[in-house]
Computed example of a mutant assay.
Amino acid sequence: MNQAPELDDPGDPYDVDEAAQAVRRRATDTESRGANRGWWDRHADEYQSEHGAFLGDDRFVWGPEGLDEEQAGLLGPVAGRDVLEIGAGAAQCARWLAGQGARPVALDLSHRQLQHALRIAASVPDSPALPLVEADASALPFADGSFDLACSAYGALPFVADPVAVLREVRRVLRPGGRFVFSVTHPIRWAFPDEPGPEGLSVSASYFDRTPYVEQDEAGEAVYVEHHRTVGDRVRDVVAGGFRLVDLVEPEWPAWNNQEWGGWSPLRGHLIPGTAIFVCER
Score class of each variant (00 low, 15 high):
G262N: 14
F182L: 05
A117N: 04
P254C: 04
R33Y: 13
G99M: 01
L67S: 08
A72I: 03
D108V: 02
A135L: 05
R179K: 13
R103F: 11
Y224V: 00
C93K: 06
G145N: 09
D17F: 14
R59F: 08
T185P: 04
P13T: 13
A102R: 06
R172L: 00
G52T: 08
P77Y: 11
V166T: 14
W40M: 04
R282Q: 11
T30I: 08
E18N: 13
V78I: 04
A53N: 06
G220V: 02
I272A: 06
E252R: 14
R175Q: 03
A165G: 00
R103C: 06
P10T: 04
A255G: 13
A44K: 06
A117H: 08
D45H: 13
S138G: 01
S204Y: 08
P158W: 10
Q48T: 03
A90N: 12
R25M: 01
R175S: 05
R59Y: 11
V160D: 02
D57N: 08
L130M: 05
L84W: 06
P64W: 08
P104Q: 08
E281C: 12
E65W: 15
T211C: 00
V78H: 06
T275V: 14
S152H: 05
E250L: 13
P77K: 12
E221V: 04
A94K: 02
V173C: 07
A27N: 02
R282L: 10
G197P: 15
D209V: 04
A88V: 01
V124T: 12
T30G: 04
L55V: 04
R33E: 03
P13G: 11
A137M: 10
H43D: 08
L271K: 13
V225Q: 07
P10V: 03
W190G: 11
Q113K: 00
D29T: 00
R171L: 06
W62I: 01
P141N: 14
P125H: 14
H186A: 05
L118N: 13
L67K: 10
R37M: 07
E195D: 14
P193C: 12
W256V: 07
E281I: 10
A102Y: 00
V249R: 13
E70Y: 03
C151Q: 09
W190I: 00
E281T: 15
V23I: 12
V225L: 02
G87W: 04
H228V: 01
G101M: 05
A27S: 02
D144K: 13
P158S: 10
